[in-house]
Design a protein around this nucleic acid. Structure first.
Lengths: 189, 189
DNA sequence: TTACAAAACTAACAATTGTTAGTTAGATAC
DNA sequence: GTATCTAACTAACAATTGTTAGTTTTGTAA
C-alpha cells in the first residue's frame, strides 16, 4: 500500500465534497468533519482553502496538458489524432474524476495568478484541438462543418465523461473508448 | 416594450451573477449592487435567495420538459426525433442561456421538495431520449453502440451549448442547428 | 391636498465563515 | 529520560452571510 500523506487525504476528501456541492458551498468544517478532525487541525497540513482548490485544478489541468503534448508528439493523421485525444481524455477522466469535476466547475475561484495560468493552459489546449480539426477539414478527412461546432461538441462530451462514468454501472474502459471514438467520429446514425 | 417587473429584473441579474460565479459564491449584497439598490430592498420583491434559485431552475426545467413533450407528440422516426430534440435544445439554449447555466451547475442547492421535483423531471427527460435511442438501435437506424454512451455524448453536448454559443461570435442559429444535427447524427469524419 | 401603495432606505440580528494562537497527546530518535 | 516532531486539540477573532424590523421616499389616483 502506498502511504498517502495526510495532506493528500485531505485533498481527496475535499475534492469529493467540492464535486458534490461546489467549492463555495463547502466549508473547512465540512472537510474536517469528513476527516473526523477539527477544522483548525487542517491547517497543520495545508495553508488554507485556496491551496486545496489550486492544487486540485492545476494538477488536473497539468495532466491534460501533458496528455495532449504526448499525443501531439506522435505526428498522426488528423483523424488518428482525434482518436488519440478521445482515448487520452477517457484515461484521465477515469483516474481523476473528482479533480475534473472541480476543474470544470470551480476554476473561476482560483486567485489571480493561478487563474491566469489555468486559462492559458485551457486556451492552449483548445487551440491544439482546433488546429487538428481545421487541418482535417482542409485535407478533406473531416466533415466540412463550422469548426467551432465540431470543436465544442467534442470537448463538451469529453469534459463531462466523469459525470456519468461513475454512476452508470462502470462501463468497461475499453468498450467505453471504442464506443466513444465511434460515436464522436462517425456519429449516431 | 414589455414592462418587466422589478422581480423579473432581479432574477435576471441574479442569473447573470450565478452563471459567472455559482449560486453559493453570490451574495444578496452582490445582487443588490448589480441592481444599484441595497440588499434589504430585494426583500420587497422576493422572499429570499432560495426563491431566486428555484424560480430559475424550475422554469428552465419546465421549458425543456414542455419542449420534449411537444417533440414526442409528433410520432416521428427515431432519427427524426433526435433531430427535433437537438433543434429544441438549441432554441431553449439561445433564449435562456443564463438560466441553463444555473440549472446545470446549481440544481443541487434546491431545497428538499423542489430538488425532488427537479430530479424527477430530469430523469424523465433522460428516459425519453434513452427510449428513442434504444428504439433506433432495435430497428437498425441507429448505430449499435452502448446506449448510455450514445445518450450521454448527445446530452453532454446539448447541455453545454450555452457555454460557447454566447462567446463565439454568435453563430447564426440556423447554421448552428444544421451543423449540430450533422455532427451529432453523422459524426466528425 | 390627501391617501395609498410601491419600493427604496438605515440599522441591526444571529449564524456562519476562514483563519490564527497557543496548547497538548503520542510516537520516534538520541 | 529528554528532546523532537507530528498532528491533534480548544478558544477565539474579525468579517461576512441571509434576513428582519421599522422608517422614509416616490409616484399615482382621488
Amino acid at each position: 500500500m502506498k502511504p498517502r500523506s495526510r495532506k493528500e487525504e485531505i485533498i481527496d476528501q475535499a475534492a469529493k465534497l467540492f464535486q458534490k456541492r461546489g467549492y463555495s458551498a463547502v466549508t473547512m468544517r465540512d472537510i474536517a468533519e469528513e476527516m473526523e478532525i477539527k477544522a483548525a487541525s487542517l491547517y497543520n497540513h495545508i495553508s488554507g482553502k485556496h491551496e486545496i482548490l489550486s492544487l486540485l485544478v492545476l494538477s488536473v489541468a497539468q495532466q491534460f496538458t501533458e496528455g495532449m503534448d504526448a499525443v501531439c508528439a506522435k505526428t498522426l493523421s488528423p483523424t488518428e489524432t482525434l482518436k488519440a485525444i478521445i482515448e487520452m481524455h477517457i484515461d484521465v477522466a477515469v483516474s481523476h474524476a473528482n479533480g475534473i469535476a472541480v476543474m470544470n466547475n470551480d476554476w473561476m475561484h482560483l486567485e489571480h495568478d493561478e487563474l491566469t495560468r489555468f486559462v492559458a493552459m485551457r486556451d492552449g489546449y483548445e487551440e491544439n484541438v482546433r488546429a487538428v480539426i481545421k487541418e482535417g477539414i482542409l485535407e478533406g478527412t473531416i466533415r466540412d462543418l463550422h469548426p467551432e461546432v465540431l470543436l465544442f461538441s467534442m470537448l463538451s462530451t469529453l469534459r463531462t465523461i466523469y459525470l456519468w462514468y461513475q454512476k452508470r454501472g462502470k462501463i468497461d474502459v475499453n468498450i467505453l473508448k471504442k464506443d466513444m471514438v465511434a460515436v464522436l467520429l462517425k456519429g449516431v446514425v
